[in-house]
Amino acid sequence: MSSANTLTRITPKNITDQEFFYGHKACAGCGGSLAVRLALKVLGERTYAAFPAGCMAAVGFIYPQMAFTNNAIITTFPGVASMASGIAVGAKALGIQNFKTVAFAGDGGTADIGLQALSGMIDRGDDVLYICYDNEAYMNTGIQKSGLTPFGTQTTTTPAGKNIHGSKTQKKNLFEIIAAHDIPYAATASIGYPQDYIDKVQKAAQVKGPAFIHVYASCPTGWGTPTETSVEIAKEAVDCGLFFLAEYENGDYRLTRNPKQFASVADYLKKQGRFKHLSDADIASIEAHRDHKWERMRRMWNHQ
């Protein structure tokens, strides 16, 4: 039934009607839950899914409300990659065939506390698809700064005041950290470009071995955005260049979207409560950082 095993492109027309993440308690309009929902629909029912502590674990498994119709498990916060590895290796040792193992972790669970285990998983070459849904903070514990919280973001541990304007650090370069392992396949995606995300999940699912997707996933609660704009805001992040869509395959980087012209960074930021405090100078510095990053990506990576 796993449609990922055919090479027909999965689209809303032919994707399975089955819902695997259903009746969960995520906030209305949660971007992370859309990332999980779509990926599981691509991967199909013969999927083991592992979730570390974080919003998706917290909203999906509240006894007796079990929101996954496929096999799913909560792992320790730092241990999702290694538990997913154990699942994949254990199932193989038992002779189970035709299945996929996927790990879904937040930005904190991936770029901070779970990075070591993820590195080990990739190094061992375990057959796991790891998807990081990036909502740019520790949401489950109440919006604290993570290693993927961008510069200038107001969180509950990076308050914006007179002296400090939110987070003082830039987002870690997670995609390249993962690619530097020479992983067979890595990609970035956004729930604002859902078909592109589906395509990448489908491609990653073909890999026998580790694969990684970093998907930008809005959080209306933590970002201070209206629930109905969750998909739109995740698209705007890409259009204004603060997030990028790319792939790493066979040792090569490729921009899968290379905007001729960026949409306004200020417009993107000003729509969100977490950036309301930013001054024009702050926004200018965010733009400068974006331009520097894109200059390097366009120079070093393949693109159209």
Partner: peptide, 17 residues
């Protein structure tokens, strides 16, 4: 595994199937 935390996590994952 790259650590003991991962050793026990992996063991649990395998046990879970």
């Amino acid at each position: 595994v790259e650590s003991e935390h991962s050793a026990i996590s992996a063991a649990m994952g395998a046990s879970a199937v």
